[in-house]
């Protein structure tokens, strides 16, 4: 489970001064459900997810991920998390097997267990053909499969996806969406950030709309539609963001 409480992050910039990237964001993501973070570019989605994955430290507020506090127990949090983003790349000079094995070892798994899990993941993700080839020669689809295997090697209870379909072709994006659903079906807590409305409609059980670092609205897609009296999710989003800017 993920629970964010008044999560805040500010950055200091020489030119722009203090930047409030995440402003008192609170929400709860449950096991077996997908929580979608919907927002425009620069809204604060990535910073929020980086805070939850303990890549960044909160300026104030806090969060618990898989039962551990992000500020006090960052390493324990990371044992519970699988983080997949467009910005998390693969080591080009390693083979897919070496890449997955490395992250298995970093997660403290014994070698025999790593071998068993790689075999299972390779079969599930149909990686047999390229498992022992170097990642720098991979197609986008192969890279995504290897990244997925890397995030799953330690069987985390929480999966964080930061715009994972960004820049992918339709087929690869569909495979990712299918994989996200599978994670939910296995009872994992899933948090999924995107700015693509159709993905939210297809995937998310609960949606949080983020704008200027603030969580402006939260609910199921149906609840949000009903609250604003329109069916089109894009129109719902525009209205919520518009109201937020008028405040």
């Amino acid at each position: 489970m993920i629970e964010a409480r008044e999560l805040t992050k500010t950055f200091q910039d020489k030119k722009r001064g203090t930047i409030q990237a995440v402003d008192r964001v609170s929400f709860r993501a449950e096991p077996g459900r997908i929580y979608g973070l919907l927002g425009a570019n620069g809204a604060g989605k990535t910073t929020t997810l980086r805070l939850l994955a303990t890549l960044l430290q909160p300026t104030s507020g806090g969060a618990t991920v898989g039962g551990f506090d992000v500020a006090r127990e960052p390493e324990k949090v990371r044992t519970q998390v699988g983080f997949l983003a467009a910005s998390t790349a693969l080591y080009g000079r390693l083979t897919a097997r070496e890449m997955i094995e490395y992250f298995g070892r970093l997660n403290g798994l014994p070698p025999a267990e790593i071998r068993t899990r790689i075999k299972r993941l390779a079969a599930e993700l149909d990686m047999g053909e390229f498992l022992d080839r170097r990642c720098d020669k991979f197609s986008t689809g192969m890279k995504q499969k290897t990244s997925i295997a890397r995030t799953l090697i330690h069987d985390p209870a929480v999966m964080i996806f930061d715009e994972p379909t960004l820049g992918l072709d339709v087929m690869t994006a569909r495979a990712i969406v299918r994989f996200v659903r599978e994670c939910r079906d296995r009872g994992k807590t899933v948090i999924y950030s995107t700015h693509v409305m159709s993905e939210v409609e297809k995937l998310c059980d609960t949606v949080g709309i983020i704008h200027d670092g603030r969580l402006c609205a939260e609910g199921t897609v149906a609840e949000l539609r009903a609250r604003h009296g329109v069916h089109d999710l894009e129109e719902v989003f525009v209205r919520i963001v518009g109201e937020e800017e008028r405040k």
Partner: peptide, 14 residues
């Protein structure tokens, strides 16, 4: 530059 630093930082290693 290659984006692997963030991948590495996601691991539970201090």
């Amino acid at each position: 530059e290659r984006g692997t630093m963030e991948t590495l930082l996601c691991s539970p290693v201090a």
